[in-house]
Each structure stands twice: as structure tokens, then as C-alpha cells.
Nucleic acid binder design. Structure first.
Length: 270
DNA sequence: CGCCAGGACGCCC
DNA sequence: GGGCGTCATGGC
């Protein structure tokens, strides 16, 4: 990645990024495509820091109204620009299916998201579809003036007071998660640094957090790239292409491989 | 209309 | 420990 400052914008060159593939692949739910004269433009947030970012053409981006300090201190990390995805894809391409998945959507990057927002978002995601997940999270943030609620804010709610979310049976899970995080009973920073099995167990102590949601929080919210969320789509990939198990060589970055595979299988028409 | 969704829980055996 | 019905809601 290289960057140059141009007025109030930051121009970025990064071949291993595609905004559509990265911001609309089911890892984050608060990015919205807006009309623009560029290839595509998205507006969204990291915690409560807003950003509008455009893809001018393949591999070329504009981070609008961003200072160099903001870019280097925040967005550079969020987009995981320090990681060499070309090297990762070369490694993955040893496997035939992974090779196809990387070729299909080579511009996916694993965003380094906020653990609290991820926890809440993926509790909402269970047995749900992506458009409706986005809608519920929209209503949650609209209720907080456009920002994502803090643990303290959400801990004051009850399943009844969250009825406006229309999140169904998940509302009671949101309340349990908020209560535990707000009280300190669940320490997300400590979990992020804990051995992976210990971290899994601590997350699953929260009501409504099972194996799948725990893996998503570890992967997307704590950047534990060895975490491997298995949903209905990945189950299909494993059954169809990996009857003898997922390749050992990709295990340390299984979560990133999972992102390529998830996007690949979901968009494969036949 | 019926089937499904980036699942987890509670109960049963 | 594994299998199955249930849980709200709405996208398609």
C-alpha cells in the first residue's frame, strides 16, 4: 500500500483491495454504497468514526476528508493494510478450490473491526439473512443518533424496550451480552488476548453465543485469523470440496481463507 | 404462498 | 454426546 495526501483527501494505491468485495461480503454490516461518479463509493463507520471512501478504479482509492494522522492511526489498521494479501493468496493457491475462490474475489481483506460491535452484530446475525441484519443494526444505531450503542447504553435496555428493533428472539441475547460486558463479567480485551480455546469458552458463556457466533467475534472483532466460522454456506463448501478436512497448510490463516470461500460459494450461481 | 437465513437453546434419548 | 423442535422476522 502507498498513500499520498491531496488536499483533505488521502489517495491510496493497494492492488489487494476491492471495496465491493470487502465492505459487502457479510463481515461488516454498517457500510452503505452511495451514488458517486467513481467506480463505487461507500460510507460507514469504525466504532463511531465515520468515513467515506471511493474506489476510483481497480486498486486506486480516495479516503475522503481524512487527515494523514487519521488515516495512519485508524483506517490503515482497519483495512489491515500492513498485511500482505498477495502473499496469503499465493499460499492459498496451493489448494484448487481456494485458488478459484481467490481468483473470483481477490480484493477481499479482513477488516479489523471492534469486538463489542462484532459481538452484538453477530448475535443479531444468527438464523437471519444479511439484508435484515443490516436493518436491525440500522435501527439500533439510529436510536443512538447514528452511533453504535456502548455497552453501558445497551445494558439499560430490556427485551421489551428493544421491541423497535424487531430482532425477535435475539433481543434477550443482546441484553445478556450488554449486561455482561458492561459489568465487566465479560472482558472483551482479555478475551482477545487469551488462548483461543479459553477465548471461545468465555464468549460462549454469553447467552445466544454458540460456536458460530464465537468464531465470528474472534475472527472479525479480535482478528484471530485462525478462527473458522462454519455457517450453512461453509458447511456446503466443506461437504463438497473438503470431505477429508480443511487443508492443514492454511490452518494458521483459516479465517481469511474462509472469507474467500464464503464469498465464492455464495456468488457461484450453479 | 413456502422456504430460507453468516444459529443457539432446551429437551429428549 | 448427538438429534430435533422451537424460537421472531422478513427477504426472496
Amino acid at each position: 500500500m502507498d498513500m499520498t495526501v491531496k488536499g483533505s483527501d488521502i489517495l491510496v494505491h493497494e492492488p489487494d483491495l476491492d471495496l465491493d468485495e470487502t465492505l459487502d461480503c457479510g463481515q461488516a454490516f454498517r457500510w452503505r454504497k452511495i451514488a458517486s461518479d467513481y467506480d463505487c463509493t461507500y460510507t460507514g463507520s469504525f466504532v463511531n468514526d465515520k468515513l467515506t471512501v471511493s474506489q476510483v478504479k481497480k486498486g486506486e482509492f480516495i479516503f475522503h476528508n481524512t487527515t494523514e494522522a487519521d488515516f495512519l492511526g485508524k483506517w490503515c489498521d482497519y483495512f489491515d493494510f500492513a498485511t500482505d494479501y498477495s502473499e496469503l493468496k499465493r499460499c492459498f493457491s496451493e489448494d484448487e478450490t481456494l485458488s478459484k475462490a481467490c481468483a473470483f474475489a481477490g480484493g477481499i481483506r479482513l477488516l479489523r473491526q471492534d469486538s463489542w460491535e462484532c459481538l452484538i452484530s453477530f448475535i443479531i446475525s444468527q438464523n437471519n439473512n444479511i439484508p435484515r441484519i443490516k436493518g436491525i443494526i440500522d435501527r439500533l444505531c439510529d436510536n443512538c443518533g447514528g452511533d453504535f450503542p456502548t455497552p453501558e447504553q445497551l445494558a439499560q435496555e430490556t427485551p421489551d424496550s428493544l421491541a423497535y428493533l424487531r430482532s425477535g428472539f435475539r433481543a434477550k441475547y443482546l441484553c445478556d451480552a450488554a449486561s455482561r460486558v458492561n459489568s465487566g463479567e465479560t472482558d472483551l480485551s482479555a478475551i482477545a488476548a487469551a488462548p483461543i480455546d479459553e477465548a471461545r469458552a468465555a464468549l460462549k458463556a454469553i447467552k445466544g453465543v454458540g460456536p458460530k457466533v464465537a468464531e465470528c467475534v474472534l475472527l472479525f472483532g479480535m482478528h484471530r485469523v485462525e478462527a473458522f466460522p462454519v455457517d450453512v454456506w461453509i458447511k456446503r463448501v466443506l461437504a463438497e470440496y473438503y470431505p477429508d478436512g480443511f487443508p492443514e497448510f492454511a490452518r494458521d490463516n483459516a479465517g481469511i481463507a474462509q472469507q474467500y470461500l464464503f464469498h465464492y460459494i455464495r456468488n457461484l450461481k450453479e
